[in-house]
Amino acid sequence: MLEQLNEKDFGTPRRIAEQEVTLEIDGMQVTVAAGTSIMRAAAESGVNVPKLCATDSLEPFGSCRLCLVEIEGRKGYPASCTTQVERGMKVRTQTPKLQALRKGVMELYISDHPLDCLTCAANGNCELQDMAGVTGLREVRYGYEGENHIHSQKDESNPYFTYDPSKCIVCNRCVRACEETQGTYALTISGRGFESRVSPGQDQPFMDSECVSCGACVQACPTATLQEKTVIELGQAEHSVVTTCAY
């Protein structure tokens, strides 16, 4: 059974509720279970709001600020991942203002990211790359001579995956996967502000930390920051098969 390499990501987990809510997204009537995020409601009706920190295996976090939307009668630009649908809500996911904001955020991301897409192990399977495309980022006016993490040391201690802090976008998906999916709490963010970076334990290498190597963090990573060594060696897969674990 051949499947798409990457399953569709609805951004936030499915909510189960007896009550349904109908709202308007980009002029379309959409009906979803109460408690669903605007992002997921949009995705279920085929509207993909840009996102980086959201993934449907983890609770919404709201940090990347790409998924901002406009809601009629509400001030500001709420994040569609952390905002739940409400009856009669009128949501717009694509406006010139939103485009400008998303491009502004993307410009910041890329101002602290290596420009090695072509030789990067995640090439072709990188959400940051996708979002740069989606937001239409064409230049980074900040230049690349400012503060950055490009020379951060790679952690290759784990036999199965590498951690390259230079590619980290601090989306916390790995940290949250370790907490929510695995329940081990081995990862955290150390430092604050611009210094923030994923850290196993207290700035330990992965192998010295509490990490149990379940791979949930690697699975959750939207970039090449946490990457399987086999993918680094062999490149991205060309097809996939669903089978059952033999352990």
């Binding site: 940090s63 955020v105 900040y142 503060e147 601090v170 923030s196």
Partner: peptide
């Protein structure tokens, strides 16, 4: 802002540092 940012959201985390540079 760069010193005190918690670092969670991108506009503040990277923006403040770029703001100083600008």
């Amino acid at each position: 802002c760069a010193i005190e940012s918690c670092g969670k959201c991108t506009p503040c985390r990277i923006g403040a540092t770029r703001g100083v540079e600008v």
